[in-house]
Simulated scan of single mutants.
Amino acid sequence: MPIPVIDLEEWRHGSLDDRASVAAEVDRALQESGFLLVKGHGIDRSFRERIRESARSFFALDGGLKERYATAVGGRGWIPPGKEANTYVDGEQLPPDLKETYTSGWDQATGAPADDAEWFSPNVWPTEVPDLERLCNEYSQVMREFATELLGLLAVAFGLEESWFSDRCNQSTHAFNINRYPALHLTGPVDEGQYRIAPHTDFGTITILDRQAGYGGLQVYSRSDGWIDAPVVEDTYTINIGDLMARWTGDRWASTQHRVLPPSPEAPDEELISLIFFCEANLDHVVESFPPPLGLPNSYLPVTTADYLRGRINAITVP
Rank of each mutant, 00 (worst) to 15 (best):
A70N: 11
E138N: 14
I3D: 01
F290C: 11
A114W: 01
S274F: 11
R312T: 13
Q93P: 05
P302L: 13
N179R: 10
S140H: 12
N282I: 05
P297A: 02
I276A: 07
T305R: 12
T249E: 01
E133F: 06
L154T: 08
T101I: 15
W164H: 03
R180I: 13
R180C: 15
S255E: 10
I79V: 12
D191I: 09
P4D: 11
T127Y: 05
V233W: 04
Y221F: 08
F47G: 08
L16Q: 12
S21E: 14
D167S: 06
T201H: 06
G250T: 06
Y139K: 04
F277L: 03
N137G: 09
V22D: 05
D229E: 09
Y139E: 00
L244R: 00
V129P: 06
E133W: 02
G74F: 01
V232P: 00
W227V: 07
E161S: 05
A254Q: 15
L244P: 13
G159K: 08
A117L: 13
N170W: 08
L309E: 06
G204M: 05
P113G: 08
R180V: 14
E266F: 05
I276T: 07
N137D: 09
H200Q: 06
F176N: 08
W119L: 04
D202N: 05
N137C: 15
E234R: 10
D131T: 13
D167I: 02
R48C: 14
A155Q: 03
A281F: 10
V5C: 09
T207W: 03
A155C: 07
V26C: 12
N177R: 13
I43H: 01
D115H: 03
H185K: 15
A183M: 03
V89E: 10
A267Q: 02
P291N: 14
P293V: 12
H13W: 06
F47Y: 13
R68D: 06
E118M: 06
F277Q: 06
G311F: 10
H185P: 00
A155W: 09
L301E: 15
A157L: 10
Q31R: 15
D167L: 11
V220A: 09
G75A: 01
G82D: 01
A175Q: 12
L153A: 07
T148E: 10
P80N: 08
G216E: 02
P291I: 09
S33I: 00
V190A: 04
H285K: 12
M143D: 01
H200A: 02
N177G: 15
E10H: 15
I51Q: 12
K66I: 13
D116V: 03
K99L: 02
N282Y: 08
C136S: 14
A112R: 10
P81E: 05
P80T: 02
L184N: 07
I239S: 01
M245H: 00
V233I: 14
F176G: 01
A230L: 08
E288L: 11
P262G: 04
V142Y: 03
L8T: 05
R12W: 11
Y181A: 08
L209G: 08
H200Y: 10
A213G: 05
V318H: 13
N314D: 06
S299P: 03
D131E: 14
S21F: 13
W78A: 03
G217V: 00
